[in-house]
Computed example of a mutant assay.
Amino acid sequence: MTTILVTGGTGTLGRLVTERLRTGGHEVRVLSRHAQPYAVDLRKGGPGLDAALAGVETVVHCASSPSGGDEQAAGRLIAAARRAGVRHLVYISIVGVDRVPLGYYKAKLAVEGLVEESGLGWTVLRATQFHDLVVQVLGTMAKLPVMLLPAGAKDQPVEVAEVADRLAELAVAAPAGRVEDMGGPEVRTFDSLARAYLKATGRRRPVLHVPLRGKTYRAFRAGGHLAPEHAVGKGTFEEYLTRRRAGSS
């Protein structure tokens, strides 16, 4: 039985990874800012981090924040993992972090570099956006009387449970370096995703396509965040919406 630490283990992805590893018979420790007994803010560090890593063989690093601090958090985690003799560090990243000049993507790419140079055995998996995030974005857009969509943009949402399955699989295997990207089953126009969302939620909104400017928008339009050659996901966006609606009824 392997002792595994999952950072961000109470989050959307980390919680599912934790469940799968425990079901597989592994001892799993959950590290997050508020989860006892390993409540640690990786951005600040502290003595609790060394205690959380004592005796751990593998770390699955899911903790992340679009508001900043990922590089500092990863640096502290890696230093503590070295001290603890961790053998394998698994990191979840995002497809396109090397092609889309978004601040959060740049931070994720920097963390990939830290992981690769850590001196630990390592594995990095990049995935496309989760269905959950796409729904959050569309929900925000739908609050306006007119739904404003970035013209020409596409997405390839993937089911978070499937990404959790893959991460759990990688965590119990040998370090594999950068593995193949994981994308959702379909590359979809943002328009089609928005209309599916409106239909599923029973909302009526006119949809307007707005051309944007800047390097980040151009990179998204060019599909820098997509992985059509790795469309290995099975769950579609409509299936996710149906399940979500059933769960809220």
Score class of each variant (00 low, 15 high):
residue 3 T to W: 00
residue 6 V to Q: 11
residue 9 G to W: 03
residue 10 T to S: 14
residue 13 L to G: 09
residue 15 R to N: 10
residue 16 L to W: 04
residue 18 T to S: 13
residue 18 T to Y: 02
residue 19 E to D: 14
residue 21 L to H: 06
residue 21 L to M: 05
residue 24 G to A: 14
residue 26 H to C: 10
residue 29 R to E: 09
residue 30 V to R: 04
residue 32 S to Q: 08
residue 39 A to D: 15
residue 39 A to R: 01
residue 44 K to A: 15
residue 47 P to I: 03
residue 48 G to Y: 04
residue 51 A to R: 15
residue 53 L to P: 00
residue 53 L to E: 12
residue 58 T to I: 02
residue 59 V to N: 01
residue 61 H to I: 00
residue 65 S to V: 00
residue 67 S to C: 00
residue 71 E to W: 00
residue 73 A to C: 04
residue 74 A to N: 09
residue 75 G to P: 01
residue 75 G to I: 01
residue 77 L to F: 00
residue 79 A to F: 00
residue 79 A to L: 02
residue 79 A to N: 02
residue 80 A to T: 01
residue 82 R to S: 05
residue 86 V to C: 02
residue 90 V to Q: 06
residue 96 G to T: 09
residue 99 R to E: 11
residue 102 L to R: 10
residue 103 G to H: 07
residue 103 G to I: 01
residue 106 K to V: 07
residue 112 E to G: 06
residue 120 L to C: 00
residue 120 L to A: 00
residue 123 T to W: 03
residue 124 V to W: 07
residue 131 H to W: 04
residue 134 V to S: 07
residue 140 T to I: 13
residue 143 K to P: 02
residue 145 P to I: 07
residue 147 M to G: 08
residue 149 L to W: 02
residue 151 A to Y: 06
residue 151 A to E: 12
residue 153 A to I: 04
residue 154 K to V: 00
residue 155 D to K: 07
residue 156 Q to D: 12
residue 165 D to L: 12
residue 168 A to N: 08
residue 169 E to I: 07
residue 170 L to V: 02
residue 171 A to E: 14
residue 172 V to N: 09
residue 174 A to Q: 14
residue 176 A to C: 06
residue 183 G to V: 13
residue 185 P to H: 07
residue 187 V to K: 10
residue 190 F to K: 11
residue 191 D to M: 06
residue 192 S to N: 10
residue 192 S to E: 14
residue 194 A to K: 06
residue 197 Y to R: 13
residue 199 K to G: 12
residue 200 A to Y: 03
residue 203 R to D: 11
residue 204 R to F: 11
residue 206 P to Y: 03
residue 206 P to A: 09
residue 209 H to P: 06
residue 210 V to H: 02
residue 210 V to I: 13
residue 211 P to I: 01
residue 214 G to Q: 06
residue 214 G to R: 04
residue 215 K to Q: 13
residue 217 Y to T: 05
residue 220 F to K: 08
residue 222 A to M: 07
residue 228 P to M: 14
residue 228 P to I: 05
residue 234 K to L: 08
residue 236 T to P: 08
residue 238 E to K: 03
residue 239 E to T: 03
residue 245 R to D: 13
residue 248 S to Q: 15
